[in-house]
Design a protein around this nucleic acid. Structure first.
Lengths: 220, 220
DNA sequence: TATAATTAACTGTCTAGTTAGTTAATTATG
DNA sequence: CATAATTAACTAACTAGACAGTTAATTATA
């Protein structure tokens, strides 16, 4: 039986420890897949690092692809939840957009491997990609576009193509993280230390204000 | 012998045909590695698609990693050359930056797999990454930063951190392409058709003008 | 004592890389 | 200038190792 799908409430304690094991596997797998991709990731290595037997990965996640999907889905679900919260909150479009960018930035800051995991599925494509994208990204993307459009209508933003702007908001945030290895090599710094993160975030938020807002200087 | 490194001018005809074969391998390999990564790429598949024997790949490129490097280097060399040309041309910083962004955008437009190839080495890291980065990216990055700094000094640009701005310029361009698979799924369009490319490029250039220039409206 | 959680040991397949050649263009030479 | 020798370009068939996934059993706990 796949231990993950059925949750036998009767076996609460037993299940609690099992959940820990499962979480440990997911944590380690995220790291492994992020650096190596689906093809490059090693089930054996993941099992060893998680301190469990290789067969247990299959017991919980069926297959390598299943494990990969589970890893990715965990993160996407969480981000999607938080993003929807921010994007559906009332208030001026200006602050909503800035709060979204800020959330996005912080979310990835805490999960350095997230962009890589993402890149890998994207490049691989296929059915699982489509499922995850439609389920988690589509709603967030739509909400973001809606907010930008609203901001334009209200005169808070310049007249831009909301779809294009959404892509730029995400792109300018994500790129810093997905190019982190280059930064490390070329600048010899750690892009994930507090100082550099703060500098980058500040820059991104300012860049967004000037790139999108009608009156960038105005305090919100 | 590695036919590629030594170029026996004496055997002109023979060598000419060999160069074609080599180029064909590189072309096919770019495609294969871009979708599958280094680990996921298949020497056998590349050989078949290029219409040659698998052993020939090793004859020319030593190893799988060697082939991957060769593929990437080809593209990076070419981009680096063109970028340096643009960045070292005289004129106002405004037009230099816009011309750089434009070149970058067009270069990738013509090589849809380039960002993916790139991402893969980056994630893998290691010695070959460092070599290529230092050789091709470092000079371009430095030149771009210099131009931004110059633009600030001349009062053409807002007072921004030149390094951060360089990252944003590249990021906002690259993201459209590296997220192309998502776009295809979510919006059901082909991001590489002429219409969408034009729309995106227009948006990016405008976004850069507003995000960076002191007087975005002013014509150059 | 039933069953969930976990493991050791195994197997079949896939694939990078090798080896021992063949083919054909080019050059040397009788 | 014909043909033998040489060499670059290329191939068929193989090997060694790696790795995903399986099986049958064991341990822990409700």
């Amino acid at each position: 039986m796949r231990g993950a799908k059925t949750k036998p409430v009767r076996y609460a304690l037993r299940h609690a420890r099992a959940a820990e094991t499962r979480a440990a596997i997911l944590r380690v797998a995220a790291d492994n897949f992020a650096t190596a991709g689906l093809a490059g990731g090693r089930m054996e290595a993941i099992a060893r690092a998680a301190g469990v037997n290789k067969a247990l990965l299959h017991y919980y996640f069926e297959s390598k692809a299943g494990l990969y999907s589970a890893v990715l889905e965990e993160h996407m679900k969480e981000f999607s939840r938080r993003a929807q919260e921010v994007l559906s909150a009332p208030g001026p479009a200006r602050s909503t957009v800035l709060r979204f960018v800020s959330l996005h930035f912080d979310f990835i800051s805490a999960r350095p491997y997230y962009p890589f995991l993402f890149q890998h599925v994207m490049m691989a494509g296929g059915r699982p990609l489509r499922r995850l994208m439609r389920k988690y990204l589509l709603p967030v993307g739509a909400a973001l576009i809606r907010i930008v459009a609203e901001g334009i209508r209200r005169g808070e933003f310049r007249r831009v193509d909301p779809g294009q702007m959404a892509a730029s908001l995400v792109g300018v945030t994500v790129f810093y993280f997905s190019s982190a290895p280059i930064t490390r090599v070329l600048r010899g710094i750690n892009p994930f230390d507090a100082t550099h993160l703060r500098q980058r975030k500040e820059h991104v938020l300012e860049f967004v204000r000037f790139g999108l807002f009608r009156n960038p200087q105005e305090t919100i």
